[in-house]
């Protein structure tokens, strides 16, 4: 059969389309010219200037505090949810539960952001890093659940039953069998939640208060009003961190699949 070359051409052109802007951005972070139309000279001056931006470092600390807490909370809630969805599949409660977990995955972020702001304002809760954290748990939860649920599909529950026949209580089977065996899935879900949390702008922007600037909120205001080369340098650092996280998550995920 004659193969058309078109699909291959489209695929590799799209790859170029995906990576060209990123490569230009990374290259520009080492360019001393402001907009990167011309290459002036290679320098690290934007990185050095970045070091002196105290706001950025404060925003980074805020982002990490939110991301770590939201990740841990959503790992606990999500693992428990995935367990329930898998173990009790088909019950009426789990159908409702699944709907609740699934909806946040498909709803536009701006809707979730505004609805949470209305919720906090109605309750007279002051917007702060805490409200951002709560909002992040809400969307991370669904992603962790789905990741762990995917791993549970190939989990053999007869191991747990065997342990229980041998006298293990549910606490022992939870800590000695279920959690260790699901660890790669839970960790992959956690890394995913962490990545989503440090990257979230729209929802955070809607539930942020004075003094609770996270890194994406800071980057947004820099894009709107600030200095482009500084964002290039910051973006390059962020891209490196995310690439490491994604590759790590990918590795853990595959390892989990092979182990199961």
């Amino acid at each position: 059969m004659k193969h058309s070359r078109l699909p291959a051409i489209v695929t590799w052109l799209v790859m170029g389309f995906f990576y060209l802007p990123i490569l230009v951005l990374v290259a520009n972070s080492f360019n001393s010219s402001r907009y990167g139309g011309q290459w002036e000279s290679t320098s690290l001056k934007w990185y050095i200037r970045l070091m002196g931006e105290r706001d950025i470092w404060q925003a980074l600390r805020n982002t990490l505090a939110v991301a770590v807490s939201a990740t841990l909370a959503s790992m606990v809630l999500g693992t428990s949810a995935a367990f329930a969805l898998h173990r009790f599949v088909g019950s009426r409660l789990q159908k409702l539960h699944y709907g609740l977990i699934y909806m946040p995955l498909v709803i536009p972020e701006i809707l979730m952001g505004l609805s949470l702001q209305l919720f906090f304002v109605s309750l007279n809760v002051e917007l702060s890093l805490v409200t951002i954290g709560i909002a992040h748990v809400t969307f991370c939860l669904s992603f962790v659940t789905m990741t762990v649920l995917a791993r549970l599909q190939d989990f053999d529950f007869s191991i747990v039953e065997a342990a229980q026949d041998l006298g293990a209580g549910w606490w022992t089977s939870l800590w000695r069998i279920l959690i260790p065996m699901l660890a790669p899935g839970i960790l992959a879900g956690g890394l995913l939640a962490f990545t989503l949390s440090i990257d979230d702008f729209v929802i955070s922007f809607f539930v942020a208060g004075l003094g609770s600037t996270t890194l994406p909120i800071k980057i947004y205001s820099m894009i709107k009003y600030g200095s482009p080369p500084l964002i290039n340098a910051l973006s390059t650092i962020l891209l490196t961190v995310t690439f490491v996280c994604v590759l790590g998550s990918h590795y853990l995920s595959n390892k989990g699949q092979k182990a199961a």
Partner: peptide, 13 residues
């Protein structure tokens, strides 16, 4: 999975 804002900013540049 890379920063959404960074990718939009890349196009702005």
């Amino acid at each position: 999975w890379t920063s959404f804002l960074v990718r939009i900013f890349a196009w702005k540049v």
